[in-house]
Design a protein around this nucleic acid. Sequence first.
DNA 1: GCATGAAGTAGAATCGATTCGATACCTGAA
DNA 2: TTCAGGTATCGAATCGATTCTACTTCATGC
Lengths: 355, 355
Amino acid sequence: MPKSKAGSQGKRAGKMSARRPTMKDVAERAEVSLSTVSYVLNDSGPVAADRRARVLEAVRALGYTPNESARNLKRRSVATIGLVIPDLVNQYFAMIAEGVEQAAAEKDVLVVFCTPEATGDGESWNSRLLRSQRLDGLIYLSGANTRMESLVELTQVGPVVLVDEKLPGFSLPCVVSHNRRGAREIAAHLTSLGHERLAILSGPQELWTAEQRLSGYREAIAAAGLDPDAVPLFIGDYQMASGERLAETALSCSAEERPTALICANDQMAIGALSYCRRAGLRVPEDVSVVGFDDLPIASLLTPRLTTVRQPARELGMEAVKLLLGLVDGAEPVSPPPAPVTLKIRESTGPISAG
Amino acid sequence: MPKSKAGSQGKRAGKMSARRPTMKDVAERAEVSLSTVSYVLNDSGPVAADRRARVLEAVRALGYTPNESARNLKRRSVATIGLVIPDLVNQYFAMIAEGVEQAAAEKDVLVVFCTPEATGDGESWNSRLLRSQRLDGLIYLSGANTRMESLVELTQVGPVVLVDEKLPGFSLPCVVSHNRRGAREIAAHLTSLGHERLAILSGPQELWTAEQRLSGYREAIAAAGLDPDAVPLFIGDYQMASGERLAETALSCSAEERPTALICANDQMAIGALSYCRRAGLRVPEDVSVVGFDDLPIASLLTPRLTTVRQPARELGMEAVKLLLGLVDGAEPVSPPPAPVTLKIRESTGPISAG
DNA sequence: GCATGAAGTAGAATCGATTCGATACCTGAA
DNA sequence: TTCAGGTATCGAATCGATTCTACTTCATGC
């Protein structure tokens, strides 16, 4: 009664702007108490049929939608997770992101972008988001330039799941695919085509995926009766440019010694390698076979179409959400087993040519 | 004083779990009132230097971070916007998204994905997000399958900005680049190379961008002294598959009548067209020139590298954020002028061959 | 010397929900 | 008839901030 002293809200001069209805409005219209409305809406208490009907009717008539900010405050959670993604234009990350988004949407959880690069002081920013309860948890897609230590710190402040990477020393829940097996299969594919002079264009040594893939390649090489240590190894950074550069290094020698197959640790590097080959006038796969890893959508648009290993990117993303939401609810952090990968044989590999 | 009756919190049995500090804790430690703390933190009231120092010290000692849920409730805004994006794997959308994310991050605004496809009943879901104050506003990247009417409804419930598309009938704020000019320039490029037998592979007729590009193409054709209405026109849907299909239709005729240049309304369709050409044994650009629109990153990785029109995708995204945040603050919806585009001439176009 | 006003501070209301505890009613058992 | 126990309902406290109002000081001007 002593309320509307002098027309309280009036920010907008013009349109009388009808304030959105609140639970109180619903309660008044249905002539019940606030708690009853809440019980009906959340199905969290006993309510007589007729009153329930009155409430629902009022909700509909008023077009009531609960205010999530208020709800979040009480609930102490925001039904929102962050996705730290180094680069959206990289289709592999984008596919994982789609999986994340899909799985989250099914649980009415929102997904927000967190690109550390853009915001400058990446980690402390993410940590702040977690601490201030703007985010319930974080899914981390590790780029080559992630500082892993800071990631460990993050786990102190809130639930974090790592995707497509692993942190050997620490028990950080993570979702990965079977990198080693995929690597072994694609390398075996090359040896089965008769290739013996190979070269490996690896990813950053400190990354678990790169290390795993390298192990896989070597297993296959050994299995083919070759000496893994005799295979030239070049360390790149998973980027296209490094693939191009390392391909040049690897292939710049006399035709007799030149590798007949280039094993690239991911598709981006393979694209770089293809690019060099074209520039150098080397035919793929006649002069040199090239393989990648990831199976980016563009891999099958290139000329020649790229032989590679498909990772179930969407599924990885979805799995990560499942894991993270579990953690948010207090479950134990148990990482799922590595997801299966599939070899995609296309035109960038061929039998070793007579010579 | 009559407050702390009987040890309030104790949820977690185990670890004594130190509850995150609240403003009240800060106030107590600094021996000032709640309001004083708030004044210091928001710089919204006069505070004596010594007390200010005490507050800041307490904040640091406690590691206090404001609870954003509570803040949102009071503030009636969540510093979060939604990005409706049909497809993340499409690099053009991804680049716009990066721009959006960057501009938003600079203003401490979060960006959440909203992929209508995934959630099923897209629009009503977005509308609910807006109504329930989980989102302050929406940036809409229109895909070919967007129902424009529902978009108009969305504007009733909250601020919405449309990117890379326009809604002719309605005054919906939008951010676009100069489609018509880009189209005119790339078509002029073809006519200047001597091409006279052209074919246009257009986008969905109902989309403004497609219509604008078509106008641009026709202007250039007319300017070259040719009859725009004599140029065969095929309507696609901006997808790769339609480009492939329409290219087949367009090119399936005797070599004398066959178009010497294919004008594709976007890169995806152009990629499809290139794919058909390869399959059909047509050399690009010797037998037929192909152009696209957008300048996807992959456009320059194809063989041949694609001649196209670059749209400033990141900038479009950033501009959209600026516009939207303005709207949220109650500014008038004035769309910026179309952003400039640039012609990228590469190897998929060449002079008409002697014949 | 006293009114005037500005600066600094505290207290309390508020945002819009959820939920605990208390109350009122009704049923069936003793 | 009475009391235990369940069901339906309400009021009030609460979540963690912001902000309006009121009060106290202290300096200044006449």
